[in-house]
Design a protein around this nucleic acid. Structure first.
Length: 513
RNA sequence: CGGGGAGUAGCGCAGCCUGGUAGCGCAUCUGCUUUGGGAGCAGAGGGUCGGAGGUUCGAAUCCUCUCUCCCCGACCA
């Protein structure tokens, strides 16, 4: 059978959750911090986040949205103004109540009772309320609209159960907040952000997603409509990878965001908010990772090429390093995916073979191992991370003339990006089941394929209120959730799986993170 | 927050029941030999046993409290 000795000890098949954690730890992306639910993001993980930030920020700015920054602390009274919103977040908010410590007489420190805050401060779980207060000051006239803002920040949600990158107590994100004159304009912005997330996921993360509207039971607290992009992980579960909300006038009413229209009348603004977070990194791991670690799509790889000189600790090293340095210079002068190629010449002491597995686990798209013979004969040995193994179970190094490699480097990098996307897309499509005609058939489907259940696409009559609650409860018994209604998902035939009424739209049903 | 498991060297673990000088493997460091595909041999360094109290002549080990992590639930824009 396979003689392959994988770089990880746990495979995806044997224990997906343990595999996920081993990737993060072995790729040196993040580690425990000692604070409940909070992680230290290490250089490789943070480097990926910085790439995501750079590419997403460019898209945000291209849409005319301006960055700004609001405080970490939000007065409790701001939250109290929007009832649904505060109710949705009340159970997971960190609260600051004191501003000074005092000795407890036993060598420890306790909050000083004398230093209790008049009004508790919330550590932001999201910033609608504080940004809304600013919008109320900034907007006077219809000429001030639309107001398009975004901030890159950390937020805190005191989750009961946390998982690295997927659900941490503190996480990094961008939150866009916009105010508009009317519903149509706000809804257009909501959907523009959704499309921005969809195309970013597909193009930059090589992660196929389905963009659509969440059912009403999954709406953001206080929102009129919530949209999401949903990605399928390799265990068949769904990951909500980004959300965009049309908030109606509820937040405007609570914060007093109004403007004088062309007729001179006061009117409430329609607001939106939208965000993606460090959760995207978890999605990338579970979309592209394999039994040898991470595979980073080149667009978001901190380094796209790593050059490993096979140092011998002798007189030949100088010439070898010179050859590698020249190779590095030739590569960084090239462009791939619209940017200069990112190359690291790894000169650290140690054997190239040992260092190689570290980069394999980190998922660098291309690894070049260069020995004295390569240097002498003008060759390179190329290892593509997405085609790691030969059939005989050995690393799939391909010896190439240096000049030929340089001529093809750009297309090679771009090909890895598209290959990862194609692989993930065909896997997702192969794991979406259609045509189930009854709830029993749905239950049977997920009972039979408990390990890789994938998603089910079906038609429903979009029940609301108590009728929807009933559907949610029945699905919950199967550990299933409604993910979203894909954009353009109307016009289905047949009957609703839950109510028996004529179906009006398509939905995706899946187990979810 | 409920149920279960765990915390001992950088990583993975044994020791705990039955208290008596802190162990193993990998990794690291040094030396020698090797070395074009995840090297071998020899030697060495590294730990207030998650934290705080308690019992005891003596605590990794027994008791109490607490923190953190993992799994299953509940919760989850």
């Amino acid at each position: 059978m396979s003689a392959i000795r994988h770089a990880l000890t746990v495979t995806r098949d044997s224990d997906f959750a343990a595999w996920y954690q081993e990737v993060i730890s072995e790729a040196e992306m993040a580690e425990e911090s000692g604070v409940r639910g909070c992680m230290v993001i290490r250089p490789w993980g943070y480097g990926i986040w910085e790439r995501i930030q750079a590419l997403m920020d460019a898209r945000i700015k291209a849409a005319g949205v301006e960055n700004c920054y609001f405080p970490l602390f939000i007065p409790l009274s701001y939250f109290a103004k929007e009832a649904e919103h505060v109710e949705g977040f009340a159970k997971e908010m960190a609260v600051v109540t004191h501003h000074r410590l005092i000795g407890d007489g036993k060598g420890g420190l306790v909050p000083d009772p004398e230093a209790k805050l008049e009004e508790p401060l919330i550590v932001r779980p999201t910033s609608e309320t504080v940004i809304g207060a600013a919008m109320a000051r900034w907007i006077q006239s219809w000429r001030d609209l639309p107001l398009l803002t975004n901030q890159w920040a950390n937020v805190v949600r005191w989750e009961m159960r946390t998982r690295m990158f997927l659900r941490t107590s503190e996480f990094l994100w961008q939150e866009g907040h916009t105010a508009h004159a009317d519903r149509a304009d706000a809804l257009e912005e909501t959907l523009r952000a959704l499309e921005m997330y969809r195309s970013f996921s597909e193009e930059s993360l090589a992660m196929p997603v389905i963009a659509g509207e969440k059912p009403e039971n999954e709406r953001f607290p206080g929102a009129v409509a919530t949209y999401s992009i949903e990605a399928m992980m390799q265990d068949g579960k769904a990951l909500q990878a980004g959300t965009s909300h049309y908030l109606g006038t509820g937040f405007a009413e609570a914060a007093g965001i109004q403007y004088q229209d062309r007729e001179g009348k006061q009117a409430l603004c329609h607001t939106t908010s939208w965000g993606v977070s460090t959760r995207l990194i978890g999605g990338v791991i579970m979309t592209h990772g394999d039994d040898d670690g991470l595979r980073v799509p080149p667009a978001i790889a901190p380094q796209q090429v790593v050059i490993l000189p096979m140092l011998r600790d002798d007189d030949g090293d100088a010439a070898l390093l010179a050859y590698c340095e020249e190779l590095r210079r030739a590569l960084v002068a090239q462009f791939a995916l619209g940017e200069p190629v990112r190359v690291l010449l790894d000169k650290r002491p140690g054997k190239a073979t040992g260092k190689r597995w570290g980069w394999v686990k980190k998922g660098v798209p291309l690894i070049l191992e260069i020995g004295g013979r390569d240097a002498a004969s003008g060759q390179v040995s190329v290892l593509r991370r997405d085609r790691l193994w030969r059939e005989d179970g050995k690393p799939n190094f391909i010896a190439q003339a240096r000049d030929l490699f340089l001529a093809q480097a750009t297309s090679e990098i771009e090909n890895i990006q598209s290959s990862l996307h194609a692989e993930a897309t065909s896997r997702r499509d192969a794991n979406i089941v259609r045509g189930l005609v009854s709830f029993d058939a749905l239950a049977e489907h997920f009972a039979e394929s408990a390990r890789y259940p994938g998603w089910v696409e079906l038609g429903w009559a979009k029940p609301t209120g108590a009728e929807l609650e009933d559907v949610v409860t029945r699905l919950k018994a199967l550990k299933l959730t409604i993910r979203n209604t894909p954009m353009g998902g109307e016009g289905v035939t047949g009957n609703c799986l839950f109510t028996g009424k004529p179906a009006t739209e398509r939905i995706y049903v899946a187990r979810a993170y």
